[in-house]
Design a protein around this nucleic acid. Structure first.
Lengths: 137, 137
DNA sequence: CTTAATTACCACCTTTAGGTAGAATTAATT
DNA sequence: AATTAATTCTACCTAAAGGTGGTAATTAAG
């Protein structure tokens, strides 16, 4: 029961970048060293963030990555969605097809509250909001 | 962000068995057909439940599976633990090593409440409690 | 004793997540 | 124009999850 490594890394990378907007564009080497994320894996993730239009990349010398839009407009759920980690409304904790009022799973009622809280957390947290928190790793 | 198939199946299987205690021992064929879980995968899961002492198996004709202890004494978290799906106290949502007061991740504070709720849900739900709920698939 | 019904075990297959390698492309600097 | 520092692309590798096949072991029933 946890996020994929890709999602975890992506959030940490973007939060770090949001904390150092003056250093943009920021290159993959720097990010890899600061966050202790394998270089090649990191570039793969960054590339997906570029394709998803969260990040723009500048190739060549003095290049690197910068935000495609301000961190205040990027929500965590948007990042999770890229790596298929977002919690959908209809998602059943026991994986049955249609888990709703008609035919619900054995954990449906208990699952409601934590599920809604997680969705709320992922949907209401912007990068800007969370960037200030924590010890920036 | 979801439970493994093994955990999902195991909970559904055990809840079903708790709902039909008069039919014990219950064999793999019956469980597979009722719950639409691939036979071979199901027997693999049952075997793990046997090794974990949640279930006892009886081989041979008229054999099958029965509870090793009453469903009122089996909590969901115990099942999740078998498949490495339990949510540990120190588990960080962004996967950093030590996420606590000293050095916490950017989502630490927001993660607290849903995490505690999920742990509560998994730790306080017994099989007996959840068995009655839902439409028994 | 034989047969049929059952679980246990071992080995494998397929798909996905996580991660790596190397060459191609781009662009600033010299 | 050459060099160098950077991203991008394609392809691959490894480990784990999910799933299957075949057979041995066990046991009740006939």
């Amino acid at each position: 029961m946890q996020l994929s490594k890709s999602s975890q890394y992506a959030i940490r990378i973007l939060a770090f970048m949001a904390n150092h907007q003056e250093m943009q564009p920021m290159n993959a080497n720097k990010l890899s060293e600061e966050l202790l994320i394998p270089y090649k894996f990191l570039t793969k993730i960054m590339n997906e963030l570029v394709k998803a239009d969260l990040i723009v990349s500048i190739r060549g010398r003095e290049g690197g990555y910068s935000f495609a839009k301000p961190p205040s407009e990027i929500i965590i759920d948007e990042i999770l969605a890229i790596f298929h980690d977002s919690i959908k409304d209809e998602q059943c904790v026991l994986g049955i097809g249609f888990c709703n009022g008609m035919c619900k799973c054995a954990l449906h009622d208990q699952w409601m509250e934590p599920k809604i809280l997680m969705q709320k957390m992922f949907r209401e947290s912007t990068l800007e909001k969370i960037a200030g928190q924590g010890c920036k790793i």
